[in-house]
Amino acid sequence: MFIVELLVNACIAFTGFYIISKIIHSTHFKSYVVKSIIVGLLTGALGVLLMFKGIAVNDSLRMDLRHIPLVLLAFYGSRFPLIIATLIIACSRFLFGVTEQAAVAFVAVLCISIGMLAIHRRLLNRPFLQNISMNVWALMMITVAVLINLGWNETALSLLLSTWTIGLTVGVLSSLLTLDFQLLNRQVDIYKKSAELDHLTGLYNRRVWDDRTAGLEQEGRIYNILALDIDHFKHVNDTYGHGNGDLVLQQFANILKEETRPHDITARIGGEEFMILIYDLAPQKATKVANRIRQRIASQRFQIDGFPAIDVTTSIGIAHGKNIHIQRMSALADESLYTAKQQGRNRTILFDNESDRHVAATANRETVRS
């Protein structure tokens, strides 16, 4: 009888596992706190449901697998949700009566969670052993609680045998389930990044650029589009080979990553052409950012294979505006870039929407090292 009821508990636990794991791995939550609260509340509710569907040994003692949802959170290292769920599950035990057995169960749940956090830290790099150890720890605490409440007798031994049998089985299966979820989500992340990032530079690709910039004119925010390309890049490819051209592109992209903010969108559009979206900067400040990038590139020696390091420069066109369609802004940035090329390269040109003309933001005539 004990086995059947614990198997029902296990089925409920696995269903809850699936739902909670999906939420834990979801990327649709903008707030970590909100997501943590939801996960904690759902896990606590699952523990309470397991209690209600558990075994009523007597009027005040219940047996179930309420510890299993806590193992899930501890395995993921979700401390805040674990605290919420632990308090809900521990306190809900008193719904079945304020008794000594309930108090023992309350303390046991607290000990289970505290011990699992310690196990998580100690076995962080050994996930399967970590999960099994958490389950064994929880079952040990349950054993202590049962023996305190029932004493050493046939009923207690039969109950513990069923609990350990089902508990360990569920523990192993839950370990495999959570590891499978982690592996699956890791693969999804890899495929997502592969689809979003340019394979050579690690910047966003053209598809992501189009997705991220669609509807910019409807946001009502000031934004700047920077169009960049590498001056005389065909000469680099023709002189040093396409492999070295790729090395130059990678080093160029690394500079763009370092000189832009995390929330700026930097993309390789194709070949040696790059675009950067910068929000909420006045034209003067956007120009300052562009010049910082340009000067950094002009001052750096680019390492290539089989030849001495070479110098590279970039020309930059900027379009500044608000409530302007991205296609129009991109065209203006490209026109500014073309003007920079015509005026001698290694310079920044800003399109001024107010005067409807191109303004030479810089006319760099620095001596480039040979």
Results as ranks from 00 to 15, higher is better:
Arg79Gly: 02
Ile166Val: 15
His320Glu: 12
Ser330Asn: 13
Asp198Trp: 03
Thr43Glu: 09
Leu82Ile: 04
His199Trp: 01
Phe94Asn: 03
Asn353Arg: 07
Asn185Gly: 01
Asn291Val: 06
Arg66Asn: 13
Val104Cys: 00
Asp59Arg: 07
Leu129Trp: 06
Ile310Pro: 02
Val172Asn: 05
Leu7Ile: 15
Leu179Arg: 01
Ile142Thr: 03
Pro127Cys: 08
Ser194Glu: 11
Arg268Glu: 05
Gly241Val: 11
Gln101His: 12
Phe29Trp: 15
Ser162Val: 03
Ala145Phe: 04
Phe106Cys: 12
Thr86Glu: 05
Arg122Cys: 13
Ser299Asp: 15
Leu173Tyr: 12
Ala319Cys: 10
Ile148Arg: 08
Leu256Lys: 00
Glu258His: 13
Glu154Ile: 09
Tyr76Glu: 13
Ile55Met: 03
Glu154His: 06
Ser92Asp: 13
Asn131His: 09
Phe52Met: 13
Ser21Asp: 11
Leu50Trp: 10
His67Thr: 10
Ser175Trp: 07
Met329Pro: 01
Leu161Asn: 02
Gly245Met: 09
Val170Lys: 00
Arg186Val: 01
Trp137Ser: 09
Asn254Glu: 12
Ser162Gln: 05
Leu249Ser: 02
Ala102Arg: 00
Asn149Pro: 05
Ala363Trp: 09
Gly171Trp: 02
Asp280Phe: 09
Asp198Leu: 11
Ser26Leu: 05
Ile324Asn: 06
Asn9Met: 08
Thr260Ala: 07
Tyr338Asn: 05
Glu366Asn: 10
Asp211Arg: 11
Glu272Arg: 01
Gly215Tyr: 11
Glu154Tyr: 03
Thr314Lys: 04
Ser315Phe: 00
Gly77His: 06
Ala363Ile: 04
Phe75Pro: 02
Glu5Trp: 04
Ser36Trp: 10
Gly271Ser: 05
Asn254Ala: 12
Asn237His: 09
Val170Trp: 00
Met275His: 12
Ala363Leu: 11
Ala363Thr: 11
Phe128Asn: 06
Ser194Asp: 06
Ser330Cys: 12
Met116Gly: 00
Trp164Pro: 05
Gly220Ala: 07
Ala214Asn: 09
Val359Phe: 13
Asp210Glu: 15
Lys234Val: 12
Ile119Pro: 08
Asn185Met: 13
Lys257Phe: 02
Asn244Thr: 10
Leu110Lys: 02
Gln342Asn: 13
Asn205Val: 04
Ala10Ile: 04
Ile88Gly: 03
Phe252Ala: 02
Ile83Lys: 01
Ser31Ala: 07
Phe94Ser: 03
Thr201Asp: 05
Glu219Leu: 15
Ile276Pro: 14
Glu273Leu: 10
Asn244Asp: 05
Gly220Phe: 11
Trp209Arg: 03
Leu6His: 09
Thr163Ala: 14
Gln101Asp: 11
Ile84Cys: 02
Glu354Tyr: 05
Thr143Asp: 06
Thr165Gly: 15
Thr86Pro: 04
Gln327Thr: 13
Asn364Met: 10
Asp229Arg: 00
Leu184Val: 07
Phe307Cys: 06
His358Pro: 04
Val8Asn: 10
Asp210Leu: 13
Gly271Trp: 04
Thr178Leu: 14
Leu139Glu: 04
Asn205His: 09
Lys22Pro: 08
Arg207Ile: 01
Thr99Asn: 05
Phe128Arg: 11
